[in-house]
């Protein structure tokens, strides 16, 4: 499944503003936020700020980079289709 990313700035009331909207087949499925220096050990990671539809955002995982995040998102979408 191909994913499409679109950079946006998001208001989080913190230093975290760089964000990517993630679309799957034209549908918005997730919003990833790049964690700023204020997160110390997690700085630089990508945080699942919100997931829509089949993307569970209950546990708000973080990812090393956008590739890892997209792999995870594809897995979630795939799992959902199987189930």
């Amino acid at each position: 499944m191909s994913l499409h990313l679109q950079p946006v700035r998001v208001a989080t009331s913190s230093d975290d503003s760089e964000s990517q909207l993630v679309f799957a087949e034209g549908f918005l499925v997730a919003m990833l936020v790049h964690l700023s220096e204020q997160h110390e050990d997690d700085a630089g990671r990508w945080f699942l700020e919100a997931g829509f539809g089949r993307i569970p955002s209950r546990d708000h995982p973080t990812f090393l980079d956008l590739d890892e995040a997209q792999t995870w998102i594809r897995q979630q979408l795939g799992n959902a289709y199987v189930s």
Binding site: S13, S14, D16, Q38, H39, D42, F47, H60, T62
Partner: peptide, 12 residues
Amino acid sequence: LSNVHVNRVLQN
């Protein structure tokens, strides 16, 4: 809450 949200609130 996620660790990220807690951190944001505490900084705030």
